[in-house]
């Protein structure tokens, strides 16, 4: 039983600020965290290890400072951490990212055969949910997305049964190992790391792979070159043509404000007036 968990280090989105004049992201001082959705994947992998034994390898592709996210994963109980980092990966979109990660996971598989690959549902910064399916297709693994529960894992027959969130219900799916699972949020709760694991996290040697170590020969498949999508511009949305009509009353009393607002509403928005009439009737 060997799970590989893919994580991403992301800026804590609750603390991102946009510069009011230049409209650029102010990165300074924004703490970097493990993408919160990935923690559900990591915890699920750790639970499988608790139950079935084996090992958990955590991998990330990113800049050197992503090491901190990997060490955090160690403190929760992961056995091995691998940082895939190379300037050649810069500017990768999801297609190029999935190529690099798939190649690195194949490399891991050569020494420690992989039973399961886990990813979070999506990241909080990119929000694409594309890298998980991308890795599965690149590696020709069966893909199980939006998994809310792993019901059964049978190492002997090499099968797994899961509950997968569909739009109007839950699919119960059975497939063969190895496969790739993207975990849904809220499906488990990340454990507190044990003291020995926390100590180990600080000392453990990091495995750092560059492009070549990750088994990538074709540089046209990674980084900017391997990315079909191009960001043309980044901007803030423009205000509506009409500014908000500010409602004020001389008395300044909330009760008068409320009455004034409702009176204006009825005149300018018949659709709202009709909806209110429907509810009154």
């Amino acid at each position: 039983m060997h799970s590989v968990v893919c994580i991403k280090q992301v800026p804590d989105s609750a603390q991102i600020r946009v510069h009011p004049v230049t409209n650029t992201i102010m990165r300074q001082g924004v703490p970097a965290i493990i993408n919160p959705y990935d923690l559900f994947a990591l915890e699920e992998a750790l639970r499988l290890k608790d139950k079935h034994g084996g090992r958990v390898t955590v991998i990330t592709m990113g800049p050197p400072q992503a090491e901190a996210a990997l060490r955090k994963a160690l403190s929760y109980g992961a056995d091995e951490i691998i940082l895939v980092t190379d300037k050649a990966f810069a500017g990768a979109d999801t297609l190029a990212t999935s190529f690099a990660l798939a190649s690195a996971i194949r490399k891991i598989d050569e020494t420690h055969p992989v039973t399961l690959v886990f990813t979070g549902k999506q990241t909080i910064d990119g929000d694409t949910a594309q890298v998980g399916p991308g890795i599965a297709k690149r590696m020709e693994l069966q893909l199980l997305t939006y998994v809310s529960r792993i019901n059964e894992l049978d190492g002997a027959s090499g099968t797994i049964t899961v509950e997968r969130r569909a739009e109007g219900g839950v699919q119960l799916l059975k497939t063969a190992l190895p496969c790739l699972v993207t975990m849904l949020e809220g499906t488990n709760e990340m454990r507190r790391g044990s003291l020995p694991d926390q100590l180990r996290a600080a000392r453990h040697e990091l495995t750092r792979w560059d492009r070549v170590a990750a088994g990538i020969e074709d540089v046209t498949k990674i980084g900017l070159k391997g990315s079909p999508t191009v960001v043309n511009k980044v901007f803030t949305p423009s205000p509506r043509a009409e500014k908000a009509e500010m409602v004020t009353v001389d008395s300044g009393r909330p009760a008068d404000l409320a009455v004034e607002l409702i009176a204006r509403l009825g005149q300018r928005f018949p659709v709202v007036e009709a909806e209110l009439a429907r509810r009154a009737g």
Partner: peptide
């Protein structure tokens, strides 16, 4: 030309797929 929020929804960006 596809526009979507980026950076955790603090900005918008327009993305194209050229070749």
């Amino acid at each position: 030309a596809a526009t979507r929020p980026t950076f955790g929804g603090s900005l918008l960006c327009t993305i194209v797929t050229l070749n």
